[in-house]
Write a protein that binds this DNA or RNA. Structure first.
Length: 578
RNA sequence: GGACCGUUAGCUCAGCUGGAUAGAGCGCUGCCCUCCGAAGGCAGAGGCCAGAGGUUCGAAUCCUCUACGGUCCGCCA
């Protein structure tokens, strides 16, 4: 249930009633009519802008519409008052039963807040998608966590979600990987090696050299690339994907589909996708102009095969073939998205690093062209993570020499902290991640703030159960009662949860969940602290089961919602954290 | 030269398809533990939402321009 949606329905039917009795003209569009929590609680529980939105089309004064609407609404027993305010807002107050009803809904419904908004539409969320050339590091971690949480959020909001990873194993960087492994292989045979510029010197390839030695003996020593490159490439990328999957597992990130770029080559898939664009008249041979203001030194005009991305909003057309006739990296990306469209998704989401921002328009153009504008693509850009230690730049890596790996970070601060902190910023805003702050167990650290609240609730319930009280959700729901204004304040926040889920899902912004959880926790803590000053405000009333149940229903409901929200973020909701 | 993103309290940042007197955490000042978990709470100070125009009943939010900051810009992915 979503109380805001319920009341909006009520407002709409009241408007309809005003239409049928002739107060309002027919044919009004209610699309912009909203019911939302007022910014100031003193204004009531809910506010609607209906009168202001409809004033112009109805050719009436906003306040006149609001007055008429108020009269209709107060007839409903849920609405205890409806007052016109400001330029034409209608502020409504709801009876106490409405908020107790929220508690009962939380405690008895399988998943309060779970939405049917997605209507089972199929969404493909592609994230991480790093080159299979090394471990996951901090730079990738944020995108991984973001994509994972977004996928969970969309699933919670009623979408049918596929989590996907695009393995960039088709380009020259996997050749570089193979050469680097070959060097480690020689090293395993006792050869002195040096890593030329552009190869990967990280320690993580040492075991692969050993493994390769065990596998092929000295068969590749003193041999040319033509002998070993293809074999080692496959061997190395497989090993790297295992490594990456293991790193992702440490972060709690799991994906359904791992799609290989290489599988697009030599199978006609790229040609097929390009032919599809060609059939729409969007492929031609041409010469691109040099970029203005920043012409490369060795610039010379060359004829290439181009995609007319400008037909779908891009700034210039884009090359899909190099001058030597081979595909550019853009071509397999087109084919990959062609594949996703063919698989029948209703919506595509790509999670890219901020440095790929220049790639957004051409990708949108490709998807628009391939799907004839039918499949929306939302590209979420992830800004950089600045890793700090007490405000200073952080430098550490045990495994790779130059970068901090995800595995290092999990060891250092834990999965929960990484995930929560990385989701406390909007995806396209830079993030300062201070490992010292994240390790703290106090108010500086929002992860513990929220988890601690959950543990506190569990502790109270445990004590009540130890005293022999029935703490089942059914019993709590039956006894639920809001005795104090502070109780109602908490319940009102709980009522916002379903609405918040839908807003977060609609905007593809999981960080809103993290902020909501902090807000709910703050209200809970305020209420909890009242028990310090007054025994009557304690939830657990010793020797009085029904009284305890009536009060604990509220905080049990808080725990349920906290747990659901943390679950979306992929963070645990601990029973205790002493 | 161009594209995209950003500019909100001392600091780090939220701010819902445009809504009422702009929020949070940290920091600062002063309080609250003979315990339902102080990993918490209460109170206070702190803002011309970068600037200028425009649209609107109504703008931090939408549009235009300017300033500053970041990312990126043919055959690397």
């Amino acid at each position: 249930m979503n109380l805001f949606a319920d009341i909006r329905t009520l407002v709409i039917s009241a408007l309809d009633a005003l239409v049928s009795d002739g107060t309002l003209p027919e044919g009004l569009d209610y699309a912009n009519v909203t019911v939302e929590p007022p910014r100031d609680a003193a204004h009531g529980d809910m506010a609607t802008n209906a009168a202001m939105v409809l004033a112009k089309p109805a050719k009436m004064k906003p306040r006149d519409i609001a007055e008429a609407l108020a009269a209709k609404l107060t007839a409903d027993d849920r609405i205890t008052s409806a007052d016109v305010a400001g330029p034409g807002f209608l502020n409504m107050a709801l009876g106490g039963d409405a908020w107790t009803g929220i508690l009962q809904a939380v405690l008895t419904q399988p998943a309060f807040g779970k939405s049917t908004m997605g209507q089972g539409l199929r969404v493909n969320v592609e994230y991480v998608s790093t080159n299979p050339t090394g471990p996951i590091h901090v730079g990738h971690t944020r995108g991984a966590v973001f994509g994972d949480a977004l996928a969970s959020l969309l699933a919670y909001a009623g979408y049918d979600v596929t989590r996907e990873y695009y393995i960039n194993d088709g380009g020259s960087q996997v050749d570089t990987l193979a050469r680097s492994v070959y060097l480690r292989y020689l090293e395993a045979h006792g050869v002195d090696i040096a890593f030329p510029e552009g190869t990967y010197p990280g320690d993580y390839l040492i075991p692969l050299g050993e493994e390769l030695k065990d596998k092929v003996g000295d068969g590749y020593v003193d041999q040319g690339e033509d002998v070993w490159l293809a074999d080692i490439r496959t061997f190395a990328t497989d090993a790297m994907m295992d490594l990456i999957r293991a790193d992702l597992a440490l972060l709690g990130v799991e994906q359904d589909v791992f799609f290989s770029e290489k599988s697009l080559y030599g199978t006609g898939r790229i040609e097929e996708a390009i032919a599809s664009l060609d059939a729409k008249g969007l492929i031609y041979e041409g010469v691109l102009e040099a970029p203005k203001g920043k012409t490369p030194d060795d610039w010379e005009p060359r004829e290439q095969t181009l995609f007319k991305s400008t037909a779908h909003g891009d700034d210039v057309d884009r090359a899909i073939k190099k001058s030597d006739g081979s595909w550019t990296y853009f071509a397999p990306d087109i084919a990959y998205h062609y594949d996703k469209i063919e698989r029948g998704y209703d919506l595509l989401i790509d999670v890219f690093g901020r440095d790929h921002g220049g790639y957004v328009k051409r990708m949108n153009a490709a998807v628009a062209a391939l799907s004839d504008g039918k499949t929306p693509l939302d590209i979420k850009l992830i800004a950089i993570v600045k890793l700090l230690q007490n405000g200073q730049e952080f430098k550490m890596s045990k495994r790779a020499g130059t970068f901090v790996t995800a595995a290092d970070m999990v060891e250092l601060v834990g999965r929960d902290a990484i995930r929560f902190i990385m989701l406390t910023r909007k995806n396209d805003a830079p993030l300062d991640f201070d490992v010292e702050v994240v390790k703290q167990t106090n108010n500086d650290n929002p992860v513990y703030y929220v988890q601690y609240a959950h543990a506190r609730v569990c502790s109270v319930i445990q004590k009540a159960e130890a005293a022999g009280m029935d703490m089942s959700d059914a019993a709590l729901a039956a006894a639920a009662r809001l005795d104090h204004e502070a109780d109602v304040t908490v319940a009102k926040k709980l009522a916002e949860w379903p609405r918040l889920v839908e807003i977060a899902a609609r905007t593809n912004e999981p960080h809103r969940i993290a902020f909501y959880l902090s807000e709910l926790t703050a209200r809970f803590n305020t209420r909890y602290s009242m028990g310090r000053d007054s025994d009557a405000m304690k939830f657990l009333q010793e020797g009085n089961t029904s009284e305890s149940q009536a009060k604990i229903a509220l905080i049990r409901a808080v725990a349920v919602v906290l747990s659901a929200g943390l679950g979306i973020l992929g963070v645990t909701a601990p029973q205790e954290m002493r």
